[in-house]
Amino acid sequence: MRFRYCVHVVMFVLLLFVTPLVTAAEFAGNKSLVVDELVYDFGCVGMDFEIVHFYKLTNTDQKAVKIDSVKTLCECSRVRLADSVLAPGDTTTIRLEFDTRDYYGGVQKGVRVFYGKGDGSKITMFWTAIVGQWLYKVKPEPISLFFLPGQTSKKSTFLNTDLESIEIIDVEALDDLITVQPVKTKAETGKAVELVITTREDIKPGTYHTNFRVSFDVGEDAAENSLPLRITIPAKIVRY
């Protein structure tokens, strides 16, 4: 039974120890830029999908800060910086795009931000995922959503086959393209939790990719991991 959860334990160790190390090493001295979260956990996700997360960077200095460059630490991901020059108090976003195609199991990668006109100031943000594996056998049905023209609402369910109970504790949509509404938030063994995903009405013609993350409390079964179960669901929307 412990073997089934070993990947989750590895993620927990990363979240515990990477964050303080990065904070001490890279925030010493110049603290102009502050990131909203140094480690983001996508959780479990299917294979051969592209998923996205936005990091937020805020300039806490009394003068403007210029971001010199943003680099990913693997070829599996891409980044887009919204604004490179931040006035005091301003916030910008970094869009991280991760392609799960060539991965299986636990993944830990990073994004590095260089700023301060080449004086060595930098921030490294990490992200984690578990690709193609479903912890506690809690697998979404379907593992991704596809909205064709005219389709505005779909259902997503998570069957609890093994655990005493699972309960939704948080739902985080990437953007406002979709609204995720929990319908049934708790499921005993053999039952399923359920969400309804609805697309925004005023989406213009085009093809859009988004995703949402669901966090679960799995009760006493998570005691040894000290982390909630997280699952990310990709969604594709086509409008004519």
Rank of each mutant, 00 (worst) to 15 (best):
C6S: 15
V7G: 13
V7E: 13
M11I: 09
M11W: 01
F12L: 06
P20G: 00
E26S: 04
F27K: 14
A28I: 10
N30G: 01
Y40Q: 10
G43H: 02
F49A: 14
I51N: 03
F54I: 01
T60V: 14
D61F: 13
K66N: 04
V70P: 01
K71N: 15
K71R: 15
C74Y: 03
E75N: 06
R78Q: 11
R80C: 11
A82V: 08
S84K: 12
V85M: 05
V85E: 13
L86T: 02
L86N: 02
T92K: 05
L96C: 02
R101F: 06
R101S: 13
G106K: 05
Q108D: 12
R112V: 14
V113Y: 02
V113A: 03
K122C: 12
M125C: 15
T128A: 11
T128F: 01
W134L: 05
F147G: 07
K155D: 11
S156I: 14
L159R: 10
N160G: 07
N160Y: 01
T161D: 12
S165M: 14
E172M: 15
D176M: 03
V180I: 14
Q181H: 06
A192T: 01
T199W: 03
E201W: 09
D202S: 06
G206L: 09
H209A: 14
T210G: 02
N211G: 09
A222R: 07
E224H: 11
L227K: 10
L227S: 04
K236I: 08
I237M: 07
V238Q: 10
V238G: 00
